[in-house]
């Protein structure tokens, strides 16, 4: 066991990925910023000065306090407070946690659906391919955000506000996963089509392996690098979609805010001069999405997979 992990680590250290990572300042900085944000989100309950979910800790008298450095600030609230008197730093830490959870969860669901359908379409071909790819084409031509908004609207109308608020986090993972699977399925299909013609697949078939075994044990591992690249970009997309849905009121409720619902609740107070409630979570969202996109760009350059244009 130990020898296996050591040799894998050595292999990683000698790999081209690590080599080019060490030489790319943008990639290193993006990775460090992302790591910092993910850690801060994971350990939010330990790091946050207050628990925004705990009503007993909230005092409405503290509402709309500006961040430190402006007139009327309180050092107890380094980034100020929102309209309900919650400490903004704490809500942002917890909000990043919710956003990241939905982002990763939605991409996991997309990956499962996308890999399954992409493998089936690419390897089985024929009718299965035609039907699956037509569905994917139609869904993509409608834009994934539109599909997500419509599905979200239907869910919200059928579950009602209260019920939807309670299960919002799972709903959002489901909605975004359903809306975006074609992106991954198309990438997987494209690389399966290329792999299918290679000799090792032929050999496996001659040896009498079943279709399922060839698909998942032989072809899938060779299509992983493009999946990895597109999944990175898709996490950024999922976080933006979640923020957009929450901003429209189709996402996380204000009692359990994500970055998107923080921006939404702050937007109502921007005209009264409290810009920090909406713009600070906004800045955090942009930085989070930007570093993931930059890492995705770097990964694509390194692995150079056959990606679809547009």
């Amino acid at each position: 066991m130990t020898t296996a992990t050591v040799s894998r680590w050595d292999r990683f250290r000698e790999s081209f990925v690590w080599y080019s990572f060490k030489r790319d300042k943008v990639a290193i900085i993006s990775f460090l910023v992302l790591l910092l944000m993910v850690l801060a989100a994971i350990f939010a309950p330990l790091l946050a000065p207050a628990n925004p979910y705990d009503l007993a800790q909230i005092n409405i008298m503290n509402s709309e306090m500006p961040p430190v450095g402006l007139d009327g600030a309180d050092p107890a609230f380094p980034l100020g407070t929102d309209a309900q008197g919650r400490d903004l730093l704490s809500t942002i830490l917890y909000g990043t946690r919710v956003s990241l959870m939905i982002g990763f969860g939605a991409v996991l669901l997309q990956a499962v659906l996308g890999i399954l359908f992409g493998l089936m379409a690419g390897y089985l071909g024929g009718k299965v391919d035609a039907i699956l790819m037509r569905i994917a084409d139609v869904q993509l031509s409608f834009s994934t955000l539109m599909v997500a908004i419509i599905v979200g609207a239907v869910f919200k109308a059928s579950f009602g506000n209260l019920m939807f608020g309670e299960i919002a986090i799972y709903m959002l993972i489901f909605i975004i996963g359903i809306a975006e699977w074609p992106q991954i399925a198309r990438t997987v299909r494209a690389s399966v089509l290329a792999e299918k013609k290679k000799e090792y697949v032929e050999a496996a078939r001659v040896m009498g392996f079943g279709t399922r075994r060839i698909m998942f044990r032989h072809i899938l591992p060779n299509t992983l690098s493009p999946i990895f690249v597109i999944a990175t970009v898709q996490i950024a997309n999922a976080i933006i979609s979640e923020a957009a849905l929450s901003f429209l009121g189709l996402g996380m409720p204000e009692t359990q805010p994500s970055l998107g619902s923080l921006i939404k609740s702050g937007f109502d107070y921007i005209q009264s001069g409290s810009w920090w409630i909406t713009l600070i979570p906004g800045l955090v969202l942009v930085v989070l999405v930007l570093v993931i996109n930059l890492l995705g760009d770097w990964l694509r350059d390194v692995m150079n997979p056959r990606l679809y244009k547009g």
């Binding site: 921006i263 713009l279 930059l294």
Partner: peptide, 18 residues
């Protein structure tokens, strides 16, 4: 334009309003 892709449209709108 790389940064622009990472900014959601509603956030651009809010910043413009501010």
């Amino acid at each position: 334009s790389t940064v622009g892709i990472s900014i959601p449209v509603f956030l651009t709108a809010i910043v413009l309003i501010q």
